[in-house]
Design a protein around this nucleic acid. Sequence first.
DNA 1: GCGACAG
DNA 2: ATCTTGTCGC
Length: 309
Amino acid sequence: MSPPEGPPSRTPSVDTDALARPAFLPDPDRSRGEMESLQRELAAAATFADDLGFDPGAVAIDEPADLSTGLPPARPEPLGDIETPDGDADSDAPVVVGIDQAFRPERDEAISAAVAIRGGRVVEYAEAVTPLSIPYIPGLLAFREGEPVLAVLEDLSVTPDLLVCDGSGRIHFRQAGIATHVGVIRDLPSVGVAKSLLCGEPDEPVGERPEGWSTPIRADDSVERVGGGEPPNADPDADSPVIGHAYQSRQYPNSRRVNPLYVSPGHRVSAGTAVDLVAALCAGYKLPEPTRLADAHADRVKRRLDAEE
DNA sequence: GCGACAG
DNA sequence: ATCTTGTCGC
């Protein structure tokens, strides 16, 4: 008999304490098979159902940041909400943290950047530099970049309500892309935003689509099924699980076409809500603001480092 | 064996 | 991801 499906519980199935954490971090001596096994554990511990404390509308951003004059200054808000000035509300809005990486190939270093946004405003910037111990291998990205991502999150003083990671979450061979990897280890709601598709199949062809358009991405044969055993050879097409969506965040009127974003649940978010969240976080550019700002911050830090040498 | 493959 | 100038088009 299959176990009853209770409401999403908040008891992490994977130890997230300091002792268990290293097991999911990069280790040059670990075999590919061992890393894949760890990903299966993470996928089993992940929750691909909504378990956030807010609606997508609560994180909506309508004004894109102006990057032409550099990044906007961080405006940390006073701690206690005591004496809330009528000027700036949103001191209770969810904190969305965008994360992105830059690299210094010649030094084998990764620069991880995080930007915390609340109520549409930058509240904090953080960065971390870590050595790269593992090469990039499709499907094992988190073992290369997960370390720097977790490092920068440690440096952040605010508590994230949502993580927006660069790369896939559930759209992954073992349904444990970097967004899922990081989300489960920190037990935080997370979504993955990728610029290209790792695996899975779109319901509809991704051609020139209008802004706001989206289509489900379903698991294909390259995606291992997780959780309740489902018939090995079920209908190949129809009821394959939806592991994410292609989302057209931007489109130009006439000229060149823009490729869609590939959005997928990381942890504690459903596939549908993940797209809604990303849609709410986009403010006119292809990338959602948290990612766009984290990307710019990573470049800024990289140039600073390159300059002082 | 061939093809596919986030950043 | 990174190495890199100009260039096509609104």
